[in-house]
């Protein structure tokens, strides 16, 4: 993983007569992402670390990486991190937050991790109202293991383990776990976002910022779903995935806040 290249923090600055309008967040390491081109993981990593930068909480933030494509999230996120077993990220986050209650703790999981093998941990973490941020990357597929069916895979969607399309008879329906979690009093803020366009990125950033603020205030669990793409698993170009998101995914997983604190806009 050690690739020699100049620090991204050494990009041209005002000193050379230019205004710096965009750069890599301080809290993102210089390592190039291993994610496939156009994958949502990269964007979400960046936005998350941008928020940590802007809130100036790098020294107080502890993250938990899942098992999934983002298993190496800790290579990129320059905060203290733990790598959990498949599905157990929020139990690990619970352990951290409970012994270090004044730190900002987040978990970061895919749909297989959070909504299949880790369903019990997901539900009970939220039910306890653990004062953490849960980031949920819903790309409707198991990216890391080569594109198998996920609990969130759409009915009829072709994957390597649903070669004739997901059939309800054998695989049940796509699970809308965020909607389920809104039912739990421990969930303070539940929102569904996407990073398929700049406006989506801006909104995600707001949602993450709010979540850390709520965590600071001790409000309970904040759950941020990002309806994501997986160009490799879906066997599409990144551009095609945007269309698929808009036409197929968003109708089932509509974007917006699912549960807002009383009085919040």
């Amino acid at each position: 993983m050690s690739i020699e290249r100049p620090s991204n923090h050494d990009f041209p600055s005002e000193a050379e007569g230019m205004d710096l309008v965009y750069c890599r967040p301080e809290t993102l390491t210089d390592l190039p992402f291993h994610y496939c081109p156009g994958c949502s993981h990269s964007v979400v990593h960046r936005v998350l670390m941008e928020v940590v930068d802007e809130l100036n909480i790098q020294d107080k933030t502890i993250g938990v990486a899942p098992v999934g494509c983002s298993v190496f999230a800790y290579h990129y996120m320059n905060v203290d991190m733990q790598e959990a077993a498949h599905g157990r990220a929020t139990a690990v986050a619970t352990g951290i937050k409970r012994v270090l209650p004044d730190r900002f703790v987040f978990s970061y999981q895919g749909d297989g991790d959070l909504a299949a093998i880790g369903t019990a941990e997901t539900i009970h973490t939220v039910n306890r109202g653990e004062n953490i941020l849960m980031v949920f990357i819903n790309n409707g597929i198991y990216g890391m293991t080569g594109g198998q069916m996920a609990p969130t895979t759409l009915v009829g969607q072709v994957t390597t383990t649903s070669p004739y399309g997901r059939q309800v008879e054998f695989a049940g329906h796509p699970i809308k776990i965020a909607d389920m979690l809104t039912q739990l009093p421990g969930a303070y803020y539940v929102t569904r976002q996407a990073v398929h366009n700049p406006n989506g990125v801006r909104k995600l950033k707001k949602a993450l910022t709010k979540s850390f603020q709520y965590q600071k205030e001790g409000k309970g669990t904040c759950f941020v779903e990002v309806v994501s793409n997986c160009p490799s698993g879906w066997k599409m170009t990144p551009v095609e995935t945007v269309k698929y998101l808009e036409e197929q995914m968003f109708p089932l997983y509509p974007l917006g806040d699912l549960k807002k604190p009383d009085g919040a806009k």
């Binding site: 690990v92 986050a93 619970t94 352990g95 951290i96 012994v99 941990e121």
Partner: peptide, 26 residues
């Protein structure tokens, strides 16, 4: 100290992992 009844032994051992990783005696 602190005591939490977890939802399963799977959860409790992973809470141990998290808390031990954060430097706590658990």
């Amino acid at each position: 100290g602190l005591v939490i009844q977890a939802e399963s032994e799977v959860a409790s051992i992973n809470m141990i992992y998290g808390a031990a990783g954060a430097g706590a005696r658990v």
